[in-house]
Design a binder for these strands. Sequence first.
DNA 1: CCCTTCTCCCAAAGCGCTTTGGAGAAAGCA
DNA 2: TGCTTTCTCCAAAGCGCTTTGGGAGAAGGG
Lengths: 339, 339
Amino acid sequence: MKLKDLAEHLQLSQTTVSRALNGYPEVAEETRRRIVEAARRFGYTPNAAARRLATGRTGSVAILFPAERNLLVDPHFSDFLAGLAEKFGEADMDLSLKATRKTEELDTYRHLATMGRVDGFIVSSPRSHDERLSLLAGLNMPFAVHGRSQDGLDFPYFDIDNEGAFRQATELLLDLGHERIALLNGIRELNFAQAREEGFRLALAGRGLSADPELIFNGPMVEEMGYRQTCHLIDRPAPPTAVLAASVLLAFGAYRAARDRGLTIGRDISIIAHDDGLPFLKAETLEPPLAATVSSIRNGGYRLAEILLGRIAGKPASELQEVAPVDLVFRPSVGSARK
Amino acid sequence: MKLKDLAEHLQLSQTTVSRALNGYPEVAEETRRRIVEAARRFGYTPNAAARRLATGRTGSVAILFPAERNLLVDPHFSDFLAGLAEKFGEADMDLSLKATRKTEELDTYRHLATMGRVDGFIVSSPRSHDERLSLLAGLNMPFAVHGRSQDGLDFPYFDIDNEGAFRQATELLLDLGHERIALLNGIRELNFAQAREEGFRLALAGRGLSADPELIFNGPMVEEMGYRQTCHLIDRPAPPTAVLAASVLLAFGAYRAARDRGLTIGRDISIIAHDDGLPFLKAETLEPPLAATVSSIRNGGYRLAEILLGRIAGKPASELQEVAPVDLVFRPSVGSARK
DNA sequence: CCCTTCTCCCAAAGCGCTTTGGAGAAAGCA
DNA sequence: TGCTTTCTCCAAAGCGCTTTGGGAGAAGGG
C-alpha cells in the first residue's frame, strides 16, 4: 500500500495525507484523525527510499573503523558503540558500521558523502591533527567527534575532561604523599591520551615535581599491557609507590602484577584508574575496590549521537561542544605512601 | 553533478550514460570509454537515494541486538560483527546496527522491512525455536542465520559443526582415560550450546557413559564464569579430571581456578575448549598452550555476509546452507587421566 | 455588505536514477 | 538489390514521496 492508494481510498489528495502523517499544521484535526486511523488500519508505512529522494535526508549515519586493527574487540569502543546505537535507534536513524583499510579511509568517507548515503558521520579516536576532520568539513558533511583535536576547526564534539580527571587523580596521590607515580596510558597518538598525560604533568608541576619519563607508558589498553608494565615497574630499583592507569583494564593487569609480586594493593602500592563504566569489569567489585575517575563511555556514545543529530538538524557547532566533568571516587586501592 | 548534466555534456541520453556506467552490454565500447572517462573527470557519483528508489534495492542490511544485554561487549559477537563489516564493506553494502529492546524486537524487524529500509537481515544467536525466523520468512525478507534452529524452516545459514567438535573433544578426553568430565557451556537457550551438549553426550554414550548433570554448567561465556564454576568443580568431593569449555574465555577462567587451587594443568586437570579465534586471547599462547577445537568466528561473519548477499541476489536457500567443519588441535593442556 | 484574512485542501512539479519499448543505422544474407 | 538482424542509442515513463504555489470557502473586520 502506497501513499497514492491511501489517498484515493480516503478521497483526499496525496498532499493532505502526507502532511497529516508528518504532523504539518495545515490540516484539520478531524481530517488528520481519519487519515491516521486509516493509515494504521491498512498498515501503511512510507517507503524509505522515496522519502529519502524527496527530502534529501537519508536517515542514516556512519562510523568507520580500521579493518586491520579490529577496534570492535576493544570493549571501550564496543560500549561506546552501544550508546550510539541506542540513541540512533530511538531517533529511528540507521547507524552503519564500516570496516575500512587505513589507506582507503579518506576515500570511504568521500565515497559515502558524495553518494549521499549518509547524513553524517561519527568520528572516533581522533588524533591530534586529524585529516578526517578537515576532509569532512570541506565536504560540508555533518560530523561529530568523540574527543577533541588540536586542529583549529570548529566542530561538534563530546569529550570528557581527561586533563582535569588525571590532574585530580594525580593530586590525590600527591596529597597522600606519593612522589614516584607511574602513568599507564593509551596510545600516544590519540588525543585523549595526551590530555591525560598533560593533566598528570600539571599536577606534578603544581608541586614543583616533574614527570619521570621512565614511569610513563603508552600502549593498547588491555589487561596484558597493564600486567606487563606493572611487573617492570615493580622490579625497578626504586619502584613507584603509585600507579595511575588510563583504563580499568590496565588497572586489572596492574592488580595481577601486584599480587604476583606479593604486594598489598592500597598499602604497598596504590592504584587508581579511569573507569569508563565497562559493564563486565566494575571498579567497585575488584578486590580491593579500585579508586577511579568515572565517566560512562556508553553514555558518551549516547550524548555524541544527540550531538550529531543536532548538527544534522542544523544547529551551529558552537552549541554542540560538550566536555563532561569526571568524578573522582575514592576507594581502598589507594592509601598513603609508605615512609 | 548529476546524470542529466553528465549526459548533456556528452551529448548523449541519460539512458546511455546510465547503461555505460552500470556495465550493460548495449553500448559501444568506444562510447563507454568516453563516458567513463568523463564521469571520472567530473567526479560524478550516482545518488544513492535515487538509485534505491529506481531499483528497489537499498544496498543495506541490518543486524539487531538486544539493548538491555549489551551483546556488543561480548567479544564473540564483536569479532563476528567485524567479519560481517568486512565483507559488506567489500560489497559496498551498508551494515546497520540496531539496538532494540526485547519487547520491541519483532516490531523493529517488521518496521525496517515494510519501510523498505534494508535488503536483508543477519540473525544472530538463534534460539531453538525462534519467532524471528518465521516473521522474516512471512515478510518475504531475505535473511541469514548465524547458527541453526529447530524450526522446520528452510533458510540460509552458516554454522560450525558444534556437535561434531564437542563429540571429538570429548572422545579425545575419553581416549586419555578421563571419565569425570565437566562441561562449561553457553546459555542453554542458544542453539549452539545445545548442539555442543549433544556432542558431549553422544561421545559419552558411545562409551556406555552418561553425562552427570552436576558437571554441566550453562551461563555467559566470560572469564569470571569459568573461574567460579571451575573452583566449585575442583572443590567437589570427586572433582572432574577434565574440563571441556565452550570458549577460550571460560577456559581462561578455568586456568586461573586451577592455579589458585595449586593444580597443574595438563597433569592434575585437563582443559580443552572451543576457540573462536578471538584476537586478544590466543589459545596457543596460554601457559600451558590450550588444546582446542578451532574455528574463526570472524571468518564465520565473513561467510555469513556472503551467504546473505547470495540470498539477496536470489539464490535458493538450499544452496546457502553451510556447516563448517571444526579442527581439533592437541596441545599440552590435556594429558592422560591420573590413576 | 464588501473586502481581507485564515483555514483547509489540491494539482502538479520535482527528487535523480533505471528501464521499457522503440528507432535509425549498419551489417549480414540471399 | 531488397530484406532481416544486430548494434547503438534515445525519449519517456516510472519509482513513491515531499513541497511549492495556489484556490475555494468560511470567518472576521470595517
